[in-house]
Design a protein around this nucleic acid. Structure first.
Lengths: 198, 198
DNA sequence: GTCTATATTGCGATAGAC
DNA sequence: GTCTATCGCAATATAGAC
């Protein structure tokens, strides 16, 4: 086998197994077996099991680098918030393991939380809060709004929809076919609320 | 040491350590050492490490049995939704480890997920959705509202506020002194949205 | 009911052949 | 660059003394 192949297969297998059972739930024996490589390849390419884990984590959170894209010039605050919903759904759809690393690190942080995980998450909330604060100052949003808490509310709505899937799949349709409706529903709740117009 | 004491201390230590590092991240050696008991006490009282874990999990989710209380007779749908926010905050405040088991089981389910975790979570969402559906039929809430997705949105807002703490503590005040303001802010967003009144 | 001591298995990491 | 073989250690679980 050639170099790049073995390394890549270890990353793929590591992503799946670490996501499913956490850093401590997988052994290097199992990782190497699943990758069809020998056990020593993990030390060779990543130094240790933790090294492989941190590489996987870094790759998982690389998608957050594109967060700035949702803030296109000239777009209204409302359009940006809707863009955030779409971007977040897309992230979860194209990477079904992201949420596991995300919540696992938030509740059982490893040594890599501070450098690889917290900054991108904090950054997203900061950008959303900025956009909300802008809209507030332009008179589009209510003066009483706390921008950061509102940003957390929007992020919470959409992330929890995916997080809760295993416990609620019998209650609502989680299929990608419904994604655009979900964007509409959640944008409507966040902007107008659920109360009927007077 | 008397029987009840040793068993109780193992439960306390198990709760803290399993929450902090997950089922696979803690050894029976460490558990027994931290509880000031011998290693064989875990087998004696719980059969195995997994037995201790499932006992802890059961105790953690016992607080969900009181969910029915938020639906007091005569209370308006709006009052019930606000009661849910308060009840959820109270749950997280009085048990700082609950959210770790909650998200850890949702993303890395153990054998106990189906019996101990999914039912209470699904039940809460079902009750919220029922209340929203009622309000909708009474004309209080917008006809276009999807009750289950709206229930998930409300649950997501408040749970994510606590979930994201580690990554956002520098951005907003997470102290219990702000809890009642948070209830007001999130109830307002969920019912009226963030858009300024016309 | 609680302990110590131990049986057995599996772990992460590495040495050294090819 | 990849393998096999192995070292040293820690894991869970249990036997048996008290």
């Amino acid at each position: 086998m050639v170099k790049a192949d073995c390394r890549r297969r270890l990353m793929e297998v590591g992503t799946r197994l670490f996501a499913e059972r956490g850093l401590h739930g997988v052994s290097v024996r199992e990782l190497s077996r699943a990758a069809g490589a020998s056990i020593s390849m993990i030390s060779y390419y990543f130094g240790s099991k933790e090294g492989l884990y941190s590489s996987v984590l870094q790759e998982q959170f690389a998608c957050f680098d594109q967060i700035g894209d949702i803030r296109q010039q000239g777009a209204s605050p409302l359009a940006v918030l809707e863009g955030y919903l779409r971007w977040t759904i897309q992230r979860h759809r194209s990477n079904p393991y992201l949420l596991r690393f995300y919540t696992s690190e938030l509740t059982n942080p490893t040594a890599y939380f501070a450098t690889l995980v917290a900054p991108p998450i904090g950054n997203v909330i900061k950008i959303l809060a900025d956009v909300i604060e802008e809209g507030r100052q332009q008179g589009q949003f209510r003066p009483g709004i706390n921008a950061v808490n509102a940003a957390l509310a929007l992020a919470g709505m959409i992330n929890y929809f995916f997080l809760s899937t295993l416990a609620t799949e019998s209650l609502t349709n989680h299929s990608p076919a419904q994604d655009e409706q979900l964007v509409g529903q959640y944008a409507a709740i966040f902007t107008q609320g659920i109360i009927a117009a007077p």
